[in-house]
Design a protein around this nucleic acid. Structure first.
Length: 192
DNA sequence: TAGGCCATCTGGTCCT
DNA sequence: AGGACCAGATGGCCTA
């Protein structure tokens, strides 16, 4: 719409070269009708040139903005790659990715915190992420853990212990992390 | 078909 | 002046 009438070449497809300069130089050629009397650098030409410069700037800015958003999406993809994967699920949306990451980080930090607490005491069964999450809300002021219908199920054995690939180091924890991913994605309460 | 998600464009603002 | 960042607008695609 916006690019249909005036802007003909700044729409969807970009050859993606740095030829904005060439485009600019090309467009910077003097406007067609110029009384070739004397050297009257009148307003007409300068205004046309200004228009060309403005258009070039816009095209460049659009290109930068596109790149910026691509970088942002790349970072988001990298984040998706770090989060527990869902083999059969579709790609997380942007907002899901951010919320999931938020909850996931919280859960991991809780795991560490509780592990540290337990380190000083007798060794307990391996700490599971769900128990950490069931312990308290994922973030201050957030009711993200309200999904735990039975919030006090401290036994915290995973509802189903799939034979996940798991890591050789800590299979229990790892598989549970993956299952927790389902939880965390499921409730997605919103960060703020 | 409505609604959600996304990519892109665009103008404004802030910073270097 | 120019680039980065941001938010609003718009249109396309997909799914329930």
């Amino acid at each position: 719409m916006d690019c249909s009438d005036t802007d003909t070449n700044s729409c969807d497809f970009f050859p993606h070269t740095d030829d904005e300069d060439s485009r600019g130089s090309c467009a910077a050629s003097p406007p067609p009708e110029q009384p070739q009397k004397k050297r009257r650098r009148g307003r007409a030409r300068s205004e046309a040139a200004v228009q060309v410069v403005k258009k070039n700037r816009r095209v460049k800015a659009n290109d930068r903005e596109r790149n910026r958003m691509h970088n942002l999406n790349d970072a988001l993809d990298a984040l998706r790659g770090v989060l527990p994967a869902f083999p059969d699920e579709t790609k997380l949306t942007k907002i899901e990715t951010l919320r999931f990451a938020h909850n996931y980080i919280w859960a991991l930090s809780e795991t560490i915190r509780i592990a540290d607490l337990q380190a000083g005491k007798a060794a307990e069964p391996p700490l599971l992420l769900a128990s950490a999450c069931l312990g308290e809300a994922p973030s201050p002021g957030s009711d993200a853990c309200s999904w735990s219908s039975s919030g006090s199920s401290s036994s915290s054995s995973p509802p189903y212990c799939a034979s996940s690939p798991g890591s050789p180091a800590a299979p229990d924890t790892f598989s549970f992390l993956q299952q927790d991913a389902l939880f965390f994605r499921g409730f997605v309460p919103g960060i703020y």
